[in-house]
Write a protein that binds this DNA or RNA. Structure first.
Lengths: 241, 241
DNA sequence: CGTCGGTTTGAAGGCGGTCAAGTGTTGTGG
DNA sequence: CCACAACACTTGACCGCCTTCAAACCGACG
């Protein structure tokens, strides 16, 4: 992997979100991380690699994914700026990780995190909360993959990205390809593209280039995510009348 | 919920599997749990209920599930004897839980577990490991729901049950209905039934009543779970030649 | 301006869902 | 112990959503 040290001194911080409800005024112990940069498409770690680090994205975006023996792929997560990845395994990684775009991140040694968690109860609490929240969001994903239609999945994906991204809430960046989105949602590229076209025709979305969309009607998008159909505005797309 | 106290003195134990690789010789702090019994179909907790307890199944089996507003359901997990359930939320439950069969379980107060985890580093480690393993198994489930075919899902489900059940490894108990299996695998009842019929016709399974199957050819079942087709033994079922 | 990868669009087919009927099993009451 | 009812499971026929295959379109970049 191509990595370039960004600074002589390592980045300092605490990777996990600090649990707020406990009302602590103190911060958890600080950890030192190694800044890393990698180019679009770079493999950061492979399925089966031993777990060394936990990563926090500074800029760009990362995909983690699993591959079946016959090539079928499911993207497990996209990590956006400010988010973590690398917690997909205990001894060895169960996912691979690649840079979707040129990316900068900070690597925290897993051993240091473990030591920190054993020493600092607040850090342990944050880690615990983080793992439980990930668990819940994986359950959400199972519902999406197991029980939702194609256009519901795409709508959910867009809403999720909108809520996670930092910029204007009505402008959504799609740094990943349609192929990636399909592999994240358990769909084919074509179906993703058709769903987006459908939303565009219904006036819910507007294109701002292939990797950015504007949400024109958030309510309608939320209805679409819940499977609430609006026959009046329906178009000859995925769900014919 | 119908609960009957089974004993005057509460059950004593530690709910999580004890992390083995750390090589501790000491046991984590013991907790006292309340034994509970509930009849088939009983609702143990509902989606949105505040989290009070974590449960360990003694006998019978439990399903936890989520329901969408329009009635679509996805079963998140089946808990078999010896297994835990109830870790599906931080403040409030994100799943509901029901008894698939008459069941006995032990309820551990979540507050006691949290206090224990803060006091006892070994208990914290066990809890951590448990959460991470759950996270990994949820990822497996996402791959299954997002990228596997119907017969692959059913085969995976049978193998999973076979590995988790305590009795003879070739005899699999299916305490839940076909409808439940469908809602666990993101399929319809009919498709589950057809897949099972297909495996029976191919000589992979033999019926031992509707709620018990015998695995006649474990290798073939594993091939089916990975999507490896055996055209010679194929039958006019789900996947025609 | 041409090439190339990604995206969109179109047409056809298949996997699994839905609807419906038949069969078996379980439990209950006579 | 049997009869019956209620329910679950199986099987069949048909349909539709999504995939697959294929081609056109578009934007980025040399």
């Amino acid at each position: 992997m191509q990595t370039v040290s960004l600074a002589r001194s390592p980045a300092i911080g605490f990777p996990f979100p600090v649990a707020s409800r406990s009302g602590h005024t103190t911060s958890p112990a600080q950890l030192s991380g190694r800044p890393m940069r990698c180019a679009r498409g770079t493999l950061i770690y492979a399925e089966g690699d031993s777990v060394q680090d936990l990563y926090k994205v500074v800029s760009g975006s990362i995909r983690t994914y699993r591959t079946l023996s016959d090539g079928r792929r499911l993207i497990a997560s996209f990590a956006l700026p400010g988010e973590l990845f690398g917690l997909d395994g205990i001894g060895t990684h169960r996912c691979a990780a690649e840079a979707v775009t040129d990316a900068v991140m900070i690597a925290f040694a897993r051993k240091e995190i473990e030591a920190c968690v054993e020493r600092d109860p607040l850090a342990a609490k944050c880690f615990q909360m983080f793992a439980l929240e990930k668990l819940i969001s994986e359950q959400d994903r199972c519902v999406l993959l197991g029980r939702k239609t194609a256009s519901e999945r795409v709508a959910c994906f867009l809403l999720d990205l909108a809520d996670r991204s930092e910029g204007h809430p009505h402008l959504i960046d799609l740094p990943m390809s349609r192929y990636d989105i399909g592999d994240y949602l358990g769909l084919s590229t074509e179906t993703v593209s058709r769903s987006l076209t459908c939303f565009r025709k219904r006036g819910i979305l507007a294109d701002r280039g292939p990797h950015r969309v504007e949400v024109l009607d958030r309510d309608a998008l939320e209805d679409a995510a819940s499977g609430i159909e609006t026959p009046a505005t329906d178009c000859a797309c995925l769900r014919p009348v």
